[in-house]
Computed example of a mutant assay.
Amino acid sequence: MPAASSHRRLCVHTITTKPLSIEECLVEFPKRGVSGITIWRQALEGRDLSAVARQTREAGLDIVSLSRGGFFPATSAAARQTAIEDNLKAIDQAQAIGAPLIVLVCGAVPGQPLTESRKQITDGIAAVLPAAEKAGVKLAIEPLHPMYADDRSAVNTMRQAHEICDALGSPASVGIAVDVYHVWWDPELKSQIDLAGQTGRLHAFHICDWRTPTIDLLNDRGLMGEGCINIREISDWVEATGFTGYREVEIFSNRLWATDQGEFLDRIRDSYAALYE
């Protein structure tokens, strides 16, 4: 197989190749021309953060973001404070590895009104915002598909994410992460992407695909081209805003995690090339 050429703006999340350690990712990603990496916090467990930062630079990879913060809502003040402290830790981790952005999966509480959860999300972000600004780390609210509204995120549309940004006073350090898996169905999607571009809130763009049928609500995402999402059209809307950031491949899949991860990365490279090159 010929050596991989660099694929402009291709980023892969460490969770996408979950069976690989961070050290293995730093070896395998560049072989396929991947130039960006989003590091999930569990990949950092037991690691020296300064060493991870150095090794990533030496591998020629840009650290695009750290995933994930969030999960702010809770039924008790003590639990909400614990979440705030965990997000402050995430900010410290991001600063230590040189990640410019933290992706927020905002959280929800089963049985708690979504409006209350959104208020607690807004309050939680407000509580950690000064630390993020001091560290030079941006925060990106990621709307999640409504099927996760019970316990993973009360923020399910870009409109709701914009409303939280508005409530926070629209600081430049808080924006939105657009993941096609979660928002492709939204009839307001194009106008909300346009608004994110106009307000400077479009902080991240994630790609994968929606399989039909989906057999697991969390861990059955598809590789680009395996499903029904109009990925290139959505990507074109994002590009039209002037967004020049990475296109981040984020896939949760028991099916794909069970395969040879080197071969899976080859498929990611090829599907990305089919979309953009």
Score class of each variant (00 low, 15 high):
residue 38 T to E: 15
residue 107 G to Q: 09
residue 117 S to N: 07
residue 76 S to R: 03
residue 151 D to Q: 05
residue 206 H to A: 14
residue 12 V to I: 02
residue 263 E to W: 08
residue 248 E to L: 04
residue 25 C to E: 05
residue 225 G to L: 00
residue 160 Q to A: 05
residue 24 E to S: 12
residue 86 D to E: 15
residue 175 G to V: 07
residue 43 A to H: 14
residue 17 T to A: 07
residue 171 P to D: 06
residue 159 R to A: 14
residue 103 V to F: 04
residue 20 L to N: 03
residue 111 G to K: 01
residue 80 R to S: 12
residue 103 V to K: 04
residue 65 S to I: 13
residue 35 S to M: 04
residue 170 S to K: 14
residue 91 I to R: 04
residue 83 A to G: 11
residue 117 S to R: 03
residue 212 T to Q: 12
residue 210 W to A: 15
residue 90 A to R: 11
residue 12 V to T: 08
residue 269 R to A: 15
residue 120 Q to S: 06
residue 223 L to H: 01
residue 57 R to P: 12
residue 32 R to S: 01
residue 146 P to Y: 10
residue 24 E to K: 06
residue 106 C to Y: 07
residue 197 G to H: 14
residue 43 A to K: 14
residue 151 D to W: 04
residue 96 A to H: 11
residue 247 R to A: 02
residue 272 Y to H: 08
residue 63 I to E: 02
residue 173 S to P: 09
residue 101 L to I: 04
residue 185 W to S: 15
residue 40 W to I: 03
residue 57 R to Y: 14
residue 242 G to Y: 03
residue 86 D to T: 14
residue 11 C to I: 00
residue 127 A to W: 01
residue 42 Q to E: 15
residue 198 Q to Y: 06
residue 101 L to Y: 03
residue 176 I to L: 13
residue 114 L to W: 13
residue 175 G to L: 05
residue 106 C to F: 09
residue 258 A to P: 04
residue 77 A to G: 05
residue 211 R to K: 10
residue 134 K to N: 08
residue 238 V to K: 10
residue 226 E to V: 09
residue 164 I to T: 12
residue 87 N to K: 01
residue 165 C to L: 11
residue 8 R to P: 08
residue 203 H to A: 13
residue 192 Q to F: 09
residue 196 A to I: 07
residue 140 A to H: 06
residue 256 L to K: 07
residue 231 I to H: 02
residue 211 R to A: 08
residue 107 G to N: 05
residue 79 A to R: 10
residue 188 E to Q: 14
residue 114 L to P: 09
residue 218 L to P: 07
residue 89 K to F: 12
residue 269 R to M: 13
residue 245 G to M: 00
residue 275 L to S: 05
residue 62 D to H: 07
residue 207 I to A: 14
residue 73 P to L: 02
residue 178 V to H: 07
residue 37 I to P: 05
residue 199 T to A: 13
residue 105 V to R: 01
residue 90 A to G: 08
residue 143 P to T: 10
residue 248 E to Y: 02
residue 113 P to N: 05
residue 262 G to R: 08
residue 107 G to S: 06
residue 223 L to K: 01
residue 34 V to P: 12
residue 136 G to L: 06
residue 182 H to T: 04
residue 22 I to K: 01
residue 161 A to Y: 04
residue 27 V to C: 03
residue 201 R to N: 06
residue 92 D to Q: 14
residue 242 G to V: 03
residue 186 D to M: 00
residue 173 S to K: 08
